[in-house]
Amino acid sequence: MDKILVATTNKGKLKEFRQLLSPLGIQVLSLEDMKQKIDVEEDRETFLENALKKAKTYGDFYKIPVIAEDAGLEVEALDGYPGVYSARFYGIDFGGKEPVKEDKDKANIDKLLRLLKGKKNRKARFVSVVVFYKPEDFGIWTEGYCYGYITEQPRGDRGFGYDPVFIPEGYSKTMAELQPEEKNKISHRGKAVKKLLKKLEKLYSTENPDLQGLDRTGQQI
């Protein structure tokens, strides 16, 4: 395996994946690097189902190993929303739609803070489900969580998405105020990818397919 496709066009997410996958020492491509373009709608009800759909669709189309992720923010006081709708929270009916004045990330944050205004319970967690799929061979998946709470105002200019309003447990800084290396150690995505790398190392060193996720034919267990 000399190259792998990370199924995203999100530059912030791609940057983090490239940092996290650097131990593999292989070329990391994004969807922007592919000449033929296809769209995969994230229309499933769980993070795992969305990640599996993307991994298999892109892997079978491009015929190269793929890493696909679905991730999001779950807020306790909002019954788990935005959840799988995290990237498009501003545009769904739950809590009313939010106008996009600057960009979608800002609109998502504005809506989140509006819905949490006056609420004492601001507990939340980031969730990441990562799927590795090698066409016509096998697939595996892992998950990672980062627990914390939502601030009342955005802080920091690093990261992306909801990072400016999320403070991890045990920290006083938001995700957007942390250095990338520090964030990757504690983030949901960092934890999921590290688990994935360990599973891949085990698989390639022992050729043991008895791993969480998919069997060697790519069928979901």
Results as ranks from 00 to 15, higher is better:
Thr174Gln: 10
Glu76Gln: 07
Pro209Trp: 09
Glu169Leu: 13
Ile64Asn: 06
Lys117Gly: 02
Ile4Lys: 05
Lys97Gln: 13
Gln153Lys: 15
Ile4Gly: 05
Lys119Val: 12
Gln179Trp: 00
Lys185Leu: 14
Arg125Thr: 02
Leu203Met: 15
Lys15Tyr: 08
Val193Lys: 04
Glu45Gly: 04
Asn208Met: 03
Phe94Met: 08
Phe89Gln: 02
Thr174Glu: 13
Thr217Ser: 14
Val129Asn: 02
Leu29Thr: 09
Lys195Met: 08
Lys13Val: 11
Ile150Trp: 03
Phe47Trp: 02
Lys173Arg: 15
Thr57Ala: 15
Asp110Ala: 14
Glu16Trp: 04
Tyr145Phe: 09
Glu32Phe: 08
Gln220Arg: 14
Lys183Asp: 01
Lys37Tyr: 02
Phe47Ser: 00
Lys13Cys: 04
Leu214Cys: 07
Lys101Leu: 15
Cys146Ile: 00
Gly12Met: 07
Lys119Gln: 07
Gly118Asp: 09
Tyr162Met: 02
Pro23Asn: 03
Asp39Phe: 05
Cys146Ala: 12
Asp33Tyr: 12
Ala124Met: 04
Lys54Gln: 11
Ala107Thr: 07
Leu178Tyr: 03
Asp210Gly: 13
Lys53Arg: 13
Arg44Gln: 15
Tyr171Thr: 12
Leu29Ser: 12
Thr142Asn: 03
Val40Gln: 07
Asn108Trp: 00
Cys146Thr: 04
Arg18Lys: 15
Phe89Thr: 05
Ser205Gln: 12
Val75Pro: 01
Lys37Pro: 11
Leu196Phe: 10
Tyr85Asn: 05
Arg114Gln: 00
Glu16His: 10
Gln36Asp: 12
Ile92Arg: 11
Glu102Arg: 12
Asp215Leu: 05
Asn50Asp: 03
Glu98Gln: 14
Val193Ile: 13
Asn184Leu: 04
Ser205Gly: 06
Val40Cys: 10
Lys101Ser: 07
Asp105Ile: 08
Asp93Trp: 01
Glu74Cys: 13
Tyr149Asp: 14
Asp43Ile: 14
Lys191Ile: 08
Gly91Glu: 15
Glu102Cys: 03
Leu78Cys: 00
Gln219Phe: 06
Glu16Thr: 08
Tyr90Thr: 06
Arg158His: 08
Gly159Cys: 06
Asp105Trp: 01
Tyr149Pro: 05
Ile109Pro: 07
Asp39Gln: 15
Glu16Gln: 07
Thr57Lys: 13
Glu182Pro: 09
Asp110Trp: 00
Tyr145Ser: 07
Asp43Cys: 10
Lys191His: 00
Val130Cys: 10
Thr142Lys: 08
Phe132Trp: 04
Ser86Thr: 09
